[in-house]
Design a protein around this nucleic acid. Structure first.
Length: 404
DNA sequence: CTAGGGTTAG
Protein backbone atom coordinates (compact mmCIF):
# COMPACT_ATOMS: atom_id res chain seq x y z
CA UNK A 1 0.00 0.00 0.00
CA UNK A 2 2.77 2.37 1.02
CA UNK A 3 4.91 1.44 -2.01
CA UNK A 4 1.96 2.19 -4.28
CA UNK A 5 1.90 5.64 -2.80
CA UNK A 6 -1.09 5.27 -0.55
CA UNK A 7 -1.06 6.43 3.05
CA UNK A 8 -2.84 4.01 5.38
CA UNK A 9 -5.34 5.82 7.59
CA UNK A 10 -5.90 5.25 11.29
CA UNK A 11 -8.51 2.55 10.57
CA UNK A 12 -6.03 0.57 8.49
CA UNK A 13 -3.40 0.85 11.22
CA UNK A 14 -5.92 -0.18 13.86
CA UNK A 15 -6.84 -3.30 11.91
CA UNK A 16 -3.16 -4.25 11.86
CA UNK A 17 -2.60 -3.33 15.51
CA UNK A 18 -5.64 -5.43 16.43
CA UNK A 19 -4.49 -8.41 14.40
CA UNK A 20 -0.99 -8.27 15.86
CA UNK A 21 -2.34 -7.99 19.40
CA UNK A 22 -4.69 -10.93 18.89
CA UNK A 23 -1.73 -13.05 17.83
CA UNK A 24 0.25 -12.06 20.89
CA UNK A 25 2.61 -9.74 18.99
CA UNK A 26 2.09 -6.82 21.33
CA UNK A 27 5.61 -5.49 20.92
CA UNK A 28 5.20 -5.37 17.15
CA UNK A 29 1.88 -3.60 17.67
CA UNK A 30 3.57 -1.03 19.91
CA UNK A 31 6.25 -0.59 17.23
CA UNK A 32 3.50 0.12 14.73
CA UNK A 33 1.98 2.64 17.12
CA UNK A 34 5.28 4.55 17.05
CA UNK A 35 5.75 4.02 13.32
CA UNK A 36 2.38 5.40 12.36
CA UNK A 37 3.17 8.70 14.05
CA UNK A 38 6.41 8.95 12.02
CA UNK A 39 4.39 8.36 8.86
CA UNK A 40 2.08 11.17 9.74
CA UNK A 41 -0.87 9.19 11.00
CA UNK A 42 -2.02 9.99 14.50
CA UNK A 43 -3.35 7.10 16.59
CA UNK A 44 -6.77 7.48 18.20
CA UNK A 45 -8.35 6.10 21.36
CA UNK A 46 -9.13 2.81 19.61
CA UNK A 47 -5.45 2.25 18.80
CA UNK A 48 -4.51 2.74 22.42
CA UNK A 49 -7.46 0.71 23.68
CA UNK A 50 -6.48 -2.32 21.62
CA UNK A 51 -2.89 -2.33 22.85
CA UNK A 52 -3.74 -1.51 26.45
CA UNK A 53 -6.32 -4.28 26.58
CA UNK A 54 -3.83 -6.79 25.20
CA UNK A 55 -1.26 -5.68 27.78
CA UNK A 56 -3.81 -6.00 30.58
CA UNK A 57 -4.75 -9.50 29.45
CA UNK A 58 -1.04 -10.37 29.70
CA UNK A 59 -1.06 -8.97 33.24
CA UNK A 60 1.18 -6.13 32.07
CA UNK A 61 -0.99 -3.48 33.71
CA UNK A 62 1.97 -1.27 34.59
CA UNK A 63 2.85 -1.03 30.90
CA UNK A 64 -0.80 -0.38 30.06
CA UNK A 65 -0.93 2.44 32.60
CA UNK A 66 2.20 3.91 31.02
CA UNK A 67 0.43 4.04 27.63
CA UNK A 68 -2.60 5.45 29.42
CA UNK A 69 -0.61 8.47 30.58
CA UNK A 70 1.02 8.80 27.14
CA UNK A 71 -2.32 8.98 25.39
CA UNK A 72 -3.49 11.70 27.73
CA UNK A 73 -0.28 13.70 27.19
CA UNK A 74 -1.09 13.54 23.48
CA UNK A 75 -4.53 14.91 24.21
CA UNK A 76 -6.36 11.73 23.26
CA UNK A 77 -9.27 11.27 25.67
CA UNK A 78 -9.74 7.87 27.23
CA UNK A 79 -13.26 6.47 26.87
CA UNK A 80 -15.29 3.92 28.81
CA UNK A 81 -13.55 1.04 27.00
CA UNK A 82 -10.13 2.35 28.06
CA UNK A 83 -11.21 2.42 31.68
CA UNK A 84 -12.92 -0.97 31.48
CA UNK A 85 -9.79 -2.67 30.16
CA UNK A 86 -7.63 -1.14 32.87
CA UNK A 87 -10.15 -1.93 35.61
CA UNK A 88 -10.39 -5.51 34.37
CA UNK A 89 -6.60 -5.85 34.40
CA UNK A 90 -6.30 -4.37 37.88
CA UNK A 91 -9.15 -6.53 39.21
CA UNK A 92 -7.40 -9.67 38.05
CA UNK A 93 -4.30 -8.59 39.95
CA UNK A 94 -6.37 -7.84 43.04
CA UNK A 95 -5.41 -4.14 43.04
CA UNK A 96 -8.62 -2.96 44.69
CA UNK A 97 -7.41 0.52 45.63
CA UNK A 98 -6.25 1.28 42.11
CA UNK A 99 -9.57 0.01 40.76
CA UNK A 100 -11.45 2.39 43.05
CA UNK A 101 -9.15 5.27 42.05
CA UNK A 102 -9.83 4.64 38.36
CA UNK A 103 -13.58 4.39 38.98
CA UNK A 104 -13.50 7.76 40.71
CA UNK A 105 -11.38 9.19 37.96
CA UNK A 106 -13.69 8.08 35.16
CA UNK A 107 -16.76 9.42 36.92
CA UNK A 108 -14.84 12.68 37.44
CA UNK A 109 -14.34 12.84 33.68
CA UNK A 110 -18.08 12.33 33.13
CA UNK A 111 -17.58 8.80 31.83
CA UNK A 112 -20.27 6.62 33.38
CA UNK A 113 -19.56 3.00 34.24
CA UNK A 114 -21.61 0.77 31.92
CA UNK A 115 -22.75 -2.84 32.02
CA UNK A 116 -19.22 -4.03 31.15
CA UNK A 117 -17.71 -2.06 34.04
CA UNK A 118 -20.18 -3.45 36.55
CA UNK A 119 -19.89 -6.98 35.20
CA UNK A 120 -16.12 -6.88 35.63
CA UNK A 121 -16.47 -5.63 39.20
CA UNK A 122 -19.15 -8.15 40.11
CA UNK A 123 -17.27 -11.05 38.54
CA UNK A 124 -14.07 -10.10 40.31
CA UNK A 125 -15.79 -9.83 43.70
CA UNK A 126 -17.45 -13.21 43.15
CA UNK A 127 -14.16 -14.87 42.30
CA UNK A 128 -12.60 -13.48 45.45
CA UNK A 129 -15.46 -14.97 47.47
CA UNK A 130 -16.92 -11.57 48.32
CA UNK A 131 -20.46 -12.41 47.23
CA UNK A 132 -22.31 -9.95 49.45
CA UNK A 133 -20.16 -7.13 48.05
CA UNK A 134 -20.96 -8.42 44.57
CA UNK A 135 -24.66 -8.38 45.44
CA UNK A 136 -24.33 -4.78 46.69
CA UNK A 137 -22.59 -3.74 43.49
CA UNK A 138 -25.41 -5.40 41.57
CA UNK A 139 -27.95 -3.31 43.49
CA UNK A 140 -25.99 -0.11 42.92
CA UNK A 141 -25.82 -0.84 39.23
CA UNK A 142 -29.60 -1.17 38.98
CA UNK A 143 -30.07 1.99 41.08
CA UNK A 144 -27.89 3.85 38.61
CA UNK A 145 -30.04 2.69 35.73
CA UNK A 146 -27.51 0.29 34.22
CA UNK A 147 -29.35 -2.91 33.24
CA UNK A 148 -27.60 -6.19 34.01
CA UNK A 149 -27.48 -8.65 31.11
CA UNK A 150 -26.85 -12.39 30.77
CA UNK A 151 -23.14 -11.92 31.52
CA UNK A 152 -23.79 -10.01 34.75
CA UNK A 153 -26.37 -12.55 35.89
CA UNK A 154 -24.19 -15.54 35.00
CA UNK A 155 -21.27 -14.10 36.97
CA UNK A 156 -23.37 -13.40 40.03
CA UNK A 157 -25.12 -16.77 39.89
CA UNK A 158 -21.69 -18.41 39.65
CA UNK A 159 -20.51 -16.43 42.67
CA UNK A 160 -23.54 -17.43 44.73
CA UNK A 161 -22.98 -21.06 43.74
CA UNK A 162 -19.32 -20.95 44.83
CA UNK A 163 -20.55 -19.79 48.24
CA UNK A 164 -23.21 -22.53 48.27
CA UNK A 165 -25.98 -19.94 48.24
CA UNK A 166 -28.01 -21.94 45.75
CA UNK A 167 -31.38 -20.60 46.95
CA UNK A 168 -30.24 -17.06 46.17
CA UNK A 169 -28.83 -18.29 42.88
CA UNK A 170 -32.18 -19.88 41.97
CA UNK A 171 -33.97 -16.63 42.87
CA UNK A 172 -31.64 -14.75 40.57
CA UNK A 173 -32.35 -17.19 37.74
CA UNK A 174 -36.07 -16.55 38.17
CA UNK A 175 -35.44 -12.81 38.26
CA UNK A 176 -33.54 -12.78 34.97
CA UNK A 177 -36.12 -14.96 33.24
CA UNK A 178 -38.79 -12.54 34.51
CA UNK A 179 -36.87 -9.70 32.87
CA UNK A 180 -36.70 -11.61 29.59
CA UNK A 181 -32.95 -12.03 29.83
CA UNK A 182 -32.38 -15.56 28.54
CA UNK A 183 -30.00 -17.73 30.52
CA UNK A 184 -27.76 -19.82 28.30
CA UNK A 185 -26.46 -23.36 28.75
CA UNK A 186 -23.58 -22.12 30.91
CA UNK A 187 -25.87 -20.22 33.25
CA UNK A 188 -27.97 -23.35 33.73
CA UNK A 189 -25.00 -25.67 34.07
CA UNK A 190 -23.36 -23.67 36.83
CA UNK A 191 -26.57 -23.79 38.84
CA UNK A 192 -27.41 -27.41 38.09
CA UNK A 193 -23.94 -28.62 39.04
CA UNK A 194 -24.11 -26.83 42.39
CA UNK A 195 -27.56 -28.24 43.11
CA UNK A 196 -26.38 -31.76 42.28
CA UNK A 197 -23.28 -31.43 44.46
CA UNK A 198 -25.54 -30.33 47.30
CA UNK A 199 -27.68 -33.41 46.90
CA UNK A 200 -30.57 -31.45 45.41
CA UNK A 201 -30.85 -33.54 42.29
CA UNK A 202 -34.64 -33.25 42.19
CA UNK A 203 -34.32 -29.44 42.16
CA UNK A 204 -31.79 -29.82 39.38
CA UNK A 205 -34.22 -32.00 37.41
CA UNK A 206 -36.83 -29.23 37.77
CA UNK A 207 -34.40 -26.67 36.40
CA UNK A 208 -33.63 -28.96 33.50
CA UNK A 209 -37.35 -28.96 32.67
CA UNK A 210 -37.44 -25.14 32.82
CA UNK A 211 -34.38 -25.09 30.64
CA UNK A 212 -35.93 -27.35 27.99
CA UNK A 213 -39.11 -25.27 28.05
CA UNK A 214 -36.94 -22.23 27.43
CA UNK A 215 -35.50 -23.87 24.34
CA UNK A 216 -32.06 -24.70 25.78
CA UNK A 217 -31.17 -28.39 25.32
CA UNK A 218 -29.29 -30.11 28.14
CA UNK A 219 -25.84 -31.15 27.01
CA UNK A 220 -23.43 -33.86 28.12
CA UNK A 221 -22.06 -31.64 30.91
CA UNK A 222 -25.51 -31.35 32.48
CA UNK A 223 -26.11 -35.09 32.36
CA UNK A 224 -22.64 -35.71 33.78
CA UNK A 225 -23.32 -33.34 36.67
CA UNK A 226 -26.58 -35.09 37.49
CA UNK A 227 -24.85 -38.47 37.33
CA UNK A 228 -21.99 -37.36 39.54
CA UNK A 229 -24.50 -35.82 41.94
CA UNK A 230 -26.05 -39.24 42.43
CA UNK A 231 -22.60 -40.84 42.80
CA UNK A 232 -21.55 -38.30 45.43
CA UNK A 233 -24.66 -39.03 47.44
CA UNK A 234 -24.40 -42.80 47.40
CA UNK A 235 -27.10 -43.35 44.81
CA UNK A 236 -24.95 -45.24 42.37
CA UNK A 237 -27.86 -47.16 40.90
CA UNK A 238 -29.66 -43.93 40.01
CA UNK A 239 -26.43 -42.71 38.49
CA UNK A 240 -26.30 -45.91 36.45
CA UNK A 241 -29.80 -45.27 35.12
CA UNK A 242 -28.84 -41.79 33.98
CA UNK A 243 -25.73 -43.23 32.38
CA UNK A 244 -27.71 -45.83 30.48
CA UNK A 245 -30.11 -43.16 29.28
CA UNK A 246 -27.11 -41.18 28.10
CA UNK A 247 -25.62 -44.13 26.24
CA UNK A 248 -29.00 -44.84 24.60
CA UNK A 249 -29.14 -41.24 23.40
CA UNK A 250 -25.48 -41.31 22.44
CA UNK A 251 -24.72 -38.37 24.76
CA UNK A 252 -21.71 -39.41 26.83
CA UNK A 253 -17.99 -38.81 27.02
CA UNK A 254 -14.93 -39.76 29.03
CA UNK A 255 -16.23 -37.71 31.95
CA UNK A 256 -19.35 -39.87 32.10
CA UNK A 257 -17.25 -43.00 32.39
CA UNK A 258 -14.87 -41.49 34.90
CA UNK A 259 -17.68 -40.33 37.16
CA UNK A 260 -19.37 -43.70 37.16
CA UNK A 261 -16.13 -45.67 37.58
CA UNK A 262 -15.25 -43.40 40.48
CA UNK A 263 -18.72 -43.94 41.93
CA UNK A 264 -18.41 -47.72 41.78
CA UNK A 265 -14.88 -47.62 43.25
CA UNK A 266 -16.08 -45.49 46.14
CA UNK A 267 -18.80 -47.95 47.06
CA UNK A 268 -16.40 -50.84 46.54
CA UNK A 269 -18.19 -52.36 43.56
CA UNK A 270 -14.90 -52.82 41.79
CA UNK A 271 -16.16 -55.46 39.34
CA UNK A 272 -18.65 -53.03 37.88
CA UNK A 273 -16.00 -50.31 37.74
CA UNK A 274 -13.68 -52.65 35.89
CA UNK A 275 -16.41 -53.70 33.45
CA UNK A 276 -17.03 -50.07 32.59
CA UNK A 277 -13.34 -49.49 32.21
CA UNK A 278 -13.05 -52.46 29.86
CA UNK A 279 -15.81 -51.22 27.59
CA UNK A 280 -14.25 -47.77 27.21
CA UNK A 281 -11.91 -48.59 24.31
CA UNK A 282 -14.81 -49.58 22.04
CA UNK A 283 -16.65 -46.40 22.86
CA UNK A 284 -14.58 -43.38 23.68
CA UNK A 285 -10.88 -44.03 23.68
CA UNK A 286 -9.80 -41.64 20.98
CA UNK A 287 -6.31 -40.10 20.88
CA UNK A 288 -7.30 -36.65 22.14
CA UNK A 289 -8.63 -38.02 25.40
CA UNK A 290 -5.53 -39.90 26.43
CA UNK A 291 -5.05 -37.60 29.42
CA UNK A 292 -8.42 -38.62 30.69
CA UNK A 293 -7.52 -42.31 30.25
CA UNK A 294 -4.71 -41.83 32.71
CA UNK A 295 -7.13 -40.33 35.18
CA UNK A 296 -9.37 -43.29 34.72
CA UNK A 297 -6.51 -45.67 35.38
CA UNK A 298 -5.72 -43.79 38.56
CA UNK A 299 -9.31 -43.91 39.67
CA UNK A 300 -9.56 -47.60 39.01
CA UNK A 301 -6.25 -48.34 40.69
CA UNK A 302 -7.27 -46.24 43.65
CA UNK A 303 -10.30 -48.45 44.10
CA UNK A 304 -8.26 -51.62 43.66
CA UNK A 305 -5.54 -50.42 46.00
CA UNK A 306 -8.06 -49.72 48.70
CA UNK A 307 -9.52 -53.17 48.21
CA UNK A 308 -6.04 -54.60 48.57
CA UNK A 309 -6.31 -56.59 45.36
CA UNK A 310 -2.63 -56.19 44.64
CA UNK A 311 -2.34 -58.90 42.01
CA UNK A 312 -4.92 -57.06 40.00
CA UNK A 313 -3.10 -53.79 40.66
CA UNK A 314 0.14 -55.24 39.35
CA UNK A 315 -1.56 -56.65 36.26
CA UNK A 316 -3.18 -53.33 35.56
CA UNK A 317 -0.03 -51.44 36.25
CA UNK A 318 1.85 -53.51 33.70
CA UNK A 319 -0.92 -52.87 31.17
CA UNK A 320 -0.74 -49.21 32.07
CA UNK A 321 3.05 -49.08 31.66
CA UNK A 322 2.65 -50.41 28.17
CA UNK A 323 0.10 -47.75 27.40
CA UNK A 324 2.35 -45.08 28.95
CA UNK A 325 5.12 -46.04 26.58
CA UNK A 326 2.72 -45.88 23.65
CA UNK A 327 1.57 -42.49 24.85
CA UNK A 328 5.05 -41.06 25.16
CA UNK A 329 5.21 -40.76 21.40
CA UNK A 330 2.07 -38.67 21.48
CA UNK A 331 3.57 -36.53 24.23
CA UNK A 332 1.06 -37.69 26.81
CA UNK A 333 2.52 -38.91 30.10
CA UNK A 334 1.15 -40.04 33.44
CA UNK A 335 1.00 -37.13 35.83
CA UNK A 336 2.04 -36.72 39.45
CA UNK A 337 -1.40 -37.54 40.74
CA UNK A 338 -1.35 -40.87 38.95
CA UNK A 339 2.05 -41.83 40.39
CA UNK A 340 1.08 -40.83 43.92
CA UNK A 341 -2.10 -42.86 43.89
CA UNK A 342 -0.32 -46.00 42.70
CA UNK A 343 2.61 -45.54 45.08
CA UNK A 344 0.19 -45.16 47.98
CA UNK A 345 -1.46 -48.41 46.98
CA UNK A 346 1.86 -50.23 47.04
CA UNK A 347 2.91 -48.64 50.33
CA UNK A 348 -0.34 -49.52 52.04
CA UNK A 349 -0.01 -53.14 51.12
CA UNK A 350 3.67 -53.61 51.78
CA UNK A 351 5.02 -53.76 48.23
CA UNK A 352 7.88 -51.53 49.25
CA UNK A 353 10.45 -52.35 46.54
CA UNK A 354 7.86 -51.61 43.85
CA UNK A 355 6.91 -48.39 45.65
CA UNK A 356 10.57 -47.38 45.83
CA UNK A 357 11.08 -48.10 42.15
CA UNK A 358 8.05 -46.01 41.24
CA UNK A 359 9.11 -43.14 43.46
CA UNK A 360 12.46 -43.12 41.69
CA UNK A 361 10.69 -42.98 38.36
CA UNK A 362 8.31 -40.29 39.56
CA UNK A 363 11.08 -38.06 40.88
CA UNK A 364 13.07 -38.60 37.70
CA UNK A 365 10.11 -37.27 35.75
CA UNK A 366 9.94 -34.21 37.93
CA UNK A 367 6.89 -35.05 40.05
CA UNK A 368 6.80 -34.83 43.83
CA UNK A 369 5.33 -36.97 46.55
CA UNK A 370 2.06 -35.44 47.73
CA UNK A 371 0.97 -35.03 51.35
CA UNK A 372 -0.72 -38.44 51.49
CA UNK A 373 2.30 -40.28 50.15
CA UNK A 374 4.63 -38.42 52.49
CA UNK A 375 2.37 -39.16 55.44
CA UNK A 376 2.41 -42.88 54.64
CA UNK A 377 6.18 -42.94 54.40
CA UNK A 378 6.53 -41.04 57.67
CA UNK A 379 4.12 -43.44 59.32
CA UNK A 380 6.11 -46.45 58.12
CA UNK A 381 9.36 -44.80 59.21
CA UNK A 382 8.01 -44.33 62.70
CA UNK A 383 7.54 -48.09 62.75
CA UNK A 384 11.25 -48.30 61.93
CA UNK A 385 11.00 -50.25 58.72
CA UNK A 386 14.52 -50.71 57.32
CA UNK A 387 13.44 -51.00 53.71
CA UNK A 388 12.08 -47.49 53.93
CA UNK A 389 15.56 -46.06 54.23
CA UNK A 390 15.67 -46.53 50.50
CA UNK A 391 12.83 -44.06 50.27
CA UNK A 392 14.17 -41.44 52.65
CA UNK A 393 16.07 -39.46 50.08
CA UNK A 394 12.89 -38.62 48.27
CA UNK A 395 11.22 -36.80 51.09
CA UNK A 396 11.86 -33.71 53.06
CA UNK A 397 11.02 -34.23 56.68
CA UNK A 398 7.83 -32.45 57.73
CA UNK A 399 8.09 -30.23 60.80
CA UNK A 400 8.80 -32.21 63.93
CA UNK A 401 9.76 -35.41 62.14
CA UNK A 402 13.29 -36.68 62.20
CA UNK A 403 14.04 -39.29 59.59
CA UNK A 404 17.14 -40.40 61.43
C1' DC B 1 -10.80 -1.22 14.59
C1' DT B 2 -11.43 -1.66 20.97
C1' DA B 3 -14.05 -3.80 26.74
C1' DG B 4 -17.22 -8.24 30.61
C1' DG B 5 -19.17 -14.19 32.04
C1' DG B 6 -18.83 -19.49 30.55
C1' DT B 7 -20.15 -25.18 33.31
C1' DT B 8 -18.31 -31.64 34.72
C1' DA B 9 -13.44 -35.80 36.93
C1' DG B 10 -8.81 -38.58 40.00
Amino acid sequence: MVLAGYQPDVYAYNVLVNGLSNFGKINVAIGLLKGMVQRGCEPNAVTYNIIMDALCKDKLVVEALHLFSQMRIKGISPDVITYNSLIHGLCKLGKRNQVLALLNEMVGHNISPNVYTFSVLIDSLCKEGMVSEAQNTFKIMIQRGVEPDVVTYTSLIGGLCISDLWKEAMALLKEMVGKNISPNVFTFNILIDTLCKNGKVSYAQRIIKIMIQGGVEPDVVIYNSVMDGYCLHNQIDKARKVFELMVTNDIFDVFSYNFLINGYCKCKRIDEAKELFDEMPQKVLVPDTVTCNIITFATLLYGLCKEGDLDEVLTLFKAMEKIFRDMEEGGCLPDGYCYNVIIQGFLRHGYLPKASELIDEMVEKGFCADDNTTELVVHLLRNDDPILRILQNHFEAPKGVNFK
